[in-house]
Nucleic acid binder design. Structure first.
Lengths: 211, 211, 211, 211
DNA sequence: AATGAATGAGCCTTCATTCAT
DNA sequence: GATGAATGAAGGCTCATTCAT
């Protein structure tokens, strides 16, 4: 529970490098060798510091979650008393920031996305700390915006929102082929346009005409 | 009409089993050994029939695409002269069928989802044969339903649709935790409710008032 | 004992191709697959026609010997009544022809050379049919040219002759680097100069001054 | 001073054993398994210490060259101011020592011979460090002994010398059949007689009358 | 006479892990 | 606190061979 270590220790370098590599290659295809080489550490150091490849992975995930939520909280930093449309956009923008990266190394969102597709036992933790809060926040807003829908319908709407937020990380490779212009935009730009679009599309989708 | 094995050719059994295993474990983590064992074939048979692990994977992907599109074509079998709302629901339902499986072995959609997250060189083929047609079909419909939007906005709307269709396969593991009731529904039921919801949400999202 | 087969059959093509490939790669590194592919034959045809990879190799060797000696007999076709210097040059030139090839496909000598370095069980046959006759012929000539030497000395002289004849095939790769001009000569030219040189060097080496 | 094994490092044992086995079987036919077993090392140790089978082979070759030339330098340790006949015999004797072994493990020369027949990419190194110096040394001597010959003739004479030195290693298997007495001599004896014979034969062959 | 399918043995390599220092 | 050496398990692949047809 201590705050990692003192200086930029081997341990920290391993964590940093491992995150990048797990994200890029997936758990199985990532190799301890590559991680240690890039971190300038000994081949045995992973086992020394984290007991296991699994242990390293769990630590990477945990610290990634921690830092991601510190920087981009679920509510996007928007006050609970702001109008619901603003709060919605806050959640969406914050989600996209975590997902598509910004100034944080870009692999963080990628790691999460990968966890979704191929859970590793760490999933419950992620759900508890990231997915659940967002999920609940959105449920509240949808209830506020579309009180006439029944419970399942509202839940489905929440999924529609999350789906849109995820998709642009998830299908990155395809989008690049189908619409090259998109890939040419800066991250900042993409996030800006996306949060605007998703918010609009969602508000309309929820039934009111807010556009 | 039996499920599999027995008198099928070795080649076909390999293809069938490999599909399931690649989907479950991913390319790297899947082992030729496991595939051959489950297919009741010799360890060298993959090399004989498909030259490579890569060759096997490519074949699995190709035959999966082929059969998925035969059974559930991009337009969902809805006539081009039907009203646009029906055509839209056709595309969405067909997409969900391919994605969430139905009576076809369930792993097929999973394979595709995985390919998106972690392209293997076969991606261009998938795009050409599956993603592009759906993409173009949806672009047309959105242009028809929301002619006042500019080109980028219409493209973003198309992505919102596709995002929703993908999500329920992609986040299966999480949904199961967040809403156990959902996992208890039959596949058929889920697809039914989803295609209804996504169509509605989308039609509204596009700005018309169809709700 | 029959003369191979009737037409340019699969069997003959296998023999031809196998000779080239065994010569180029050595027995172990040569693969039945490559041989069959290049011969346009089925993968199983080697086993069908020659029982074994070993069987194929033995056949290749045997037919190579047979044809090499037909074309370039040990005595080089020089009459036994010719002067000894002519007979010597006959043996040397014929040896070089077999070794360095001429119009016959070049791999034949190479195959033999390889057999020397890495005997395969077929060596006794080669010795009996090729090496021994040449050896005995040379022994006679040396006895004639240097009768004053004792038996071991004469035998060593014979080896010196054979050594020179072998060397230019054997060290081809090195000679090409150490003296590029040499590699640029035509085969014909090289054989001409070599047989001249070796004959002179040998006659002098044997003690008389014949140059 | 003990022959091998026991307290030597794994790396050294691998090198020693690998040399023997590569020499006996050739690169392709030699197996890492056999090497590791005989060296009492783990199957993965070759990969650990030399990265590759190729890496191991290269190291074996390099260390063999290094040690061979340390012990038996190209000039045979004879002073440059000694008479040319002595210098010639020095080169020849040293060559035979390297080639036929003496107290060094016998496979060393064999490795080289094999490399000539079937170059592996390491050939250039061998040429540079072994063949070239000997070649140049001999060229000088021949120029001194037979200044009246033209340049190509002198080069051919050098090859005649080298050919003789190589042959008795190269054709070992055949000589054993054709002259069993020869194989019964001690290595030392054989080298003694050979260097005498080759030197004489060569001096005469070069045209002077030294016999 | 010939072949497509299938097989079992064996090879090289990679990987995560351990252990003595 | 950290590491170089070594290891065992497992993986993908290649090869010669067989067998039913």
């Amino acid at each position: 529970m201590s705050v990692s270590s003192e200086s930029e220790s081997t341990r920290d370098r391993l964590l940093e490098v491992a995150g990048r590599i797990f994200a890029r290659r997936g758990f199985k295809a990532a190799t301890i060798r590559e991680i240690c080489e890039q971190a300038g550490a000994n081949l045995a150091s992973v086992n020394y510091h984290f007991r296991d490849k699994d242990g390293l992975y769990a630590e990477v995930l945990a610290s990634t979650i921690r830092r991601a939520l510190e920087r981009y909280p679920a509510d996007g930093g928007v006050s609970r008393r702001a109008p619901v449309t603003e709060r919605l956009e806050g959640v969406i923008r914050s989600f996209l920031q975590r997902t598509l990266g910004l100034d944080e190394p870009e692999w963080k969102g990628c790691l999460m996305a990968r966890e979704l597709a191929e859970p590793s036992g760490a999933l419950p933790k992620i759900i508890q700390e990231v997915a659940r809060p967002v999920h609940d926040l959105l449920l509240e807003m949808v209830a506020e915006l579309a009180p006439e829908r029944n419970e399942e319908e509202r839940w489905l709407c929440v999924q529609s929102i999350i789906a849109q937020c995820h998709f642009f990380r998830h299908a990155e490779a395809v989008l690049e082929v189908l619409r090259p212009q998109w890939a040419e935009l800066s991250k900042q730009d993409r996030i800006e346009r996306l949060s605007g679009h998703i918010t609009q599309f969602t508000l309309r989708g929820l039934g009111g005409v807010h556009g």
